[in-house]
């Protein structure tokens, strides 16, 4: 069948975007040869950075899901004062430069501040620590979780929750037996997005904790010190790992959907 002119133009335009996205990634992945991949994968600093990146992104996601999901439910279900302001505040870390986000965090948890020094006296330091990395990752990525979960809760008809309460379940039990399972798909998607965004964070992390090295910081360091040839295999390896993690998580999330037409 002959395609219309509009469809042909759209296909060309789509091709431009796809090429723009695919070319650097394909070039990156095809650049290093097998020995360079092997060397990068056996480099202890690279392995340590990968572990730090994945584990801290995971920690940040899990820890902030605990308060983030109830906040998402409140935003989806309740009317309250300053709701729009709070929603704007949640979105803010996504739009500000992430180095600025790192500086903002530093003004709160630096040992020079009251809170920072108090936390440090309690043995909790954020500057140059794993905790600092997780915090910086969480700061810039938690909006993805909150917004996805909020949309998930909004999609559930209120009548489900009202029915549960009318059947005698408390609001708390209703949340766990109705709201959470029905919004599960959106929440898991949000957690995947938060995890992915967290592990790729550079700007805020590098301000709070240059060391221990995360992969984005290691790539930056290798590129600055040794140039493209040394940075590229690590970057390529990380892209492959990220891709594998993403596919695995997506598969897990879409295994079972609760969809009611």
């Amino acid at each position: 069948m002959k395609r219309g002119i509009q469809q042909q133009i759209f296909m060309v335009l789509s091709g431009v975007v796809l090429l723009f996205l695919a070319a650097p990634l394909v070039s990156l992945l095809l650049g290093p040869d097998l020995s360079e991949y092997t060397r990068a994968a056996s480099d202890s600093e690279t392995i340590s950075s990968i572990k730090t990146t994945l584990s801290m992104a995971f920690m940040a996601t899990v820890l902030f899901a605990v308060p983030g999901i109830p906040l998402a439910w409140l935003l989806a279900r309740k009317k309250f004062m300053l709701k729009n302001f709070i929603q704007g505040m949640i979105d803010l870390p996504v739009v500000i430069p992430h180095t600025a986000a790192g500086i903002a965090l530093l003004t709160v948890v630096s040992p020079k501040t009251t809170l920072g020094s108090t936390l440090e006296s309690l043995g909790l330091s954020f500057i140059g620590t794993h905790a600092g990395i997780a915090m910086a990752m969480a700061f810039v990525s938690v909006p993805f979780l909150i917004n996805a979960a909020r949309q998930g809760f909004e999609m559930i008809p209120v009548s489900y929750e009202k029915t549960s309460m009318s059947l005698g379940l408390s609001p708390g039990r209703t949340f766990f037996k109705v709201s959470l399972p029905l919004a599960r798909h959106s929440i898991i998607n949000g957690m995947i997005m938060m995890f992915a965004r967290g592990m790729s964070e550079f700007g805020a992390v590098v301000i709070i904790a240059y060391h221990p090295l995360t992969i984005p910081t290691l790539i930056f360091e290798r590129f600055g010190a040794f140039g493209l040839d040394h940075a590229r295999p690590i970057a390529a390896l990380f892209v492959l790992i990220a891709l594998a993690v993403f596919i695995l998580l997506r598969w897990f999330a879409t295994r079972k959907k609760y969809v009611e037409s």
Binding site: S159, T163, S164, S166, L167, L169, Y258, V259
Partner: peptide
Amino acid sequence: DKRPFTLLFQELALFP
């Protein structure tokens, strides 16, 4: 949840 009434909505709200 404390009232001895049960409300059945028009859309039934059966948990999917």
